[in-house]
Simulated scan of single mutants.
Amino acid sequence: MLRESDLASVEALEDELEDRYGEAPAPLRNLFALARISARCRRLGIARIEVGPSAAAVTPRTDWVVEPPAGLELRNGRLLLRRESKDAAEQLATAEALLTALAPPRRKRPA
């Protein structure tokens, strides 16, 4: 599942399991969170993501060619989001926040 590159497929599997068996236990929810993060990293061209107690960092597959988004800093070819994470849940949330900051803005659909 962690090799699944299609975010929609990961979310569909998560929904299917929830429909069939009810709310997933915390370890399974964490596994799905990691699968979503992995899929988003591949889509954004990120080779590596690391989250520690005081920051999260991403390493791109190629050099960054744009200015870092607000709230992020470029250091040694990696983008950093400085945010404290006391436990695994906060580390997952920090990783998601970093990827959200890097995601291109969604286009609004015409009404």
Rank of each mutant, 00 (worst) to 15 (best):
F32C: 02
P53I: 00
E50G: 05
R40H: 12
V58E: 12
R36L: 01
L44Y: 13
L80T: 02
G22D: 07
S38A: 15
D19I: 00
V51W: 01
A70Q: 15
E14V: 01
A8F: 00
S85E: 06
S54I: 02
A101N: 07
L92W: 08
G22E: 08
A95K: 07
I37A: 10
S85K: 01
I49H: 05
A103N: 06
L13S: 08
N30E: 14
R20N: 05
G45S: 10
A56F: 04
A101G: 08
G45M: 06
G52H: 09
R20M: 05
S85Y: 07
L44K: 07
M1G: 08
V58G: 07
A39D: 14
S9T: 13
A47L: 09
E73N: 06
F32D: 02
A111L: 11
I46K: 08
R36D: 10
P53C: 00
R40G: 06
V65L: 14
L34A: 13
S38T: 10
E14Q: 15
A55E: 10
R82I: 00
V58K: 05
P69V: 00
A26G: 03
S9F: 07
R40A: 12
A47F: 08
A111N: 09
E90W: 03
L44W: 12
R36V: 04
L7W: 04
R3G: 05
P110G: 09
E67G: 01
E67H: 07
G77N: 07
R42F: 00
S85T: 12
I49Q: 06
S54L: 03
A111G: 10
A70I: 02
N30S: 12
A33V: 01
D87C: 05
D15G: 02
A39E: 13
I46D: 13
A33K: 04
S85F: 05
A111T: 05
T62E: 15
A97G: 06
L44Q: 11
S54M: 04
A39G: 08
L2Y: 07
L99I: 05
A8H: 12
S85I: 03
A93Q: 14
I46T: 13
G52A: 07
V65Y: 11
T94D: 12
V51D: 06
D6N: 13
A70S: 13
L7G: 02
T100F: 11
Q91E: 14
Y21C: 02
A95L: 04
M1F: 11
Y21A: 06
E84Q: 14
N30P: 00
A111Y: 00
E18V: 09
S38L: 04
E4M: 08
A97Q: 14
R78A: 11
A57F: 06
A89M: 08
E67T: 10
L2V: 00
